[in-house]
């Protein structure tokens, strides 16, 4: 875990409301695992007292990338950073995804901005010789991530809710088509997507599924106990024990788990 000031190398709008930012961060780049995140300070003064958690989206040499939606004051501030500016980063944090020894074929399910950590996972898994199928679900074609930036050696399936590109529907509609063929699945998206996965769990046979959770965080390192969730193995802290959990381990109960 490092606390660093990092130079912005580039920061461009890639998709509607969505930015791709590359930072120079050698220590993080050389130690981060897919599914881990960083806490970024999103201003220069004391107006916003909390850092913002963002998943590591890609690593290239000494550089790390974030893919983020500008949805509020903090992420809008980030979107205004320019090449040469400095960003204060604490990371890498959290557990990350884990590919078990015997898994060869992996299914990755991205809902919207949930693609952020999955691109890194897809690239690193493919480079280790795993077979990767990546389902990229968005509302429409305008939100689809540029295909040339996705791993070339995996199989990418575009899915849009309005059918304006690729298959029409939600990522979870295509589970029964792909799940029987794979050894492990990984998902990142809104809570509704995970609940749908639980509902169709039967059609996925016993394929283990890991999901990345989003809840409000204070510290990012397990000190403030803001991001507690219930699991079948007791209370867990998303920032330290997660953000990646086994789908079946989470106590989905009636109330929302990722209340933000």
């Amino acid at each position: 875990m490092f606390l660093l000031k990092c130079q912005v190398l580039s920061n461009e709008q890639l998709l509607p409301r969505t930015y791709l930012m590359w930072l120079e961060a050698p220590q993080v780049a050389s130690s981060v695992r897919p599914g881990q995140f960083a806490m970024l300070r999103c201003h220069d003064d004391l107006v916003r007292v909390l850092r913002r958690p963002l998943s590591i989206h890609a690593v290239d040499g000494d550089r790390v990338a974030f893919l983020y939606r500008a949805i509020g004051a903090g992420t809008r501030w980030l979107a205004n950073r320019r090449r040469g500016d400095e960003i204060d980063m604490l990371g890498p944090l959290g557990n990350g995804f884990s590919i078990t020894g015997r898994s060869r074929r992996l299914l990755l399910l991205a809902g919207g901005i949930g693609l952020a950590p999955l691109k890194f996972l897809a690239e690193s898994a493919a480079s280790q010789g795993h077979q990767v199928v990546l389902l990229v679900g968005t509302r429409n074609t305008a939100e689809q991530y540029p295909i040339d930036l996705l791993p070339s050696h995996g199989h990418v399936v575009k899915i849009t809710e309005d059918g304006s590109a690729g298959k029409k529907g939600l990522v979870t509609d295509f589970i029964s088509e792909f799940a029987p063929e794979v050894d492990q699945a990984f998902a990142c998206g809104p809570e509704g997507m995970y609940r749908e996965l639980m509902r169709v769990r039967g059609s996925m046979q016993s394929v283990p599924v890991q999901v990345s959770l989003e809840v409000r965080m204070g510290c990012g390192i397990g000190a403030c106990l803001s991001c507690t969730i219930r699991t079948n193995s007791g209370l867990k802290h998303v920032c330290k024990d997660g953000p990646v959990f086994d789908l079946d381990d989470i106590d989905w109960g009636a109330a929302p788990v990722c209340r933000i």
Partner: peptide, 22 residues
């Protein structure tokens, strides 16, 4: 076990917390 989520909310130059003594 502490309180229901969300347990923190950022406010102008501050934050609210209701961890519930987990």
């Amino acid at each position: 076990p502490g309180n229901a989520e969300p347990r923190v909310a950022e406010t102008a130059s501050g934050m609210l917390n209701a961890i519930g003594l987990e």
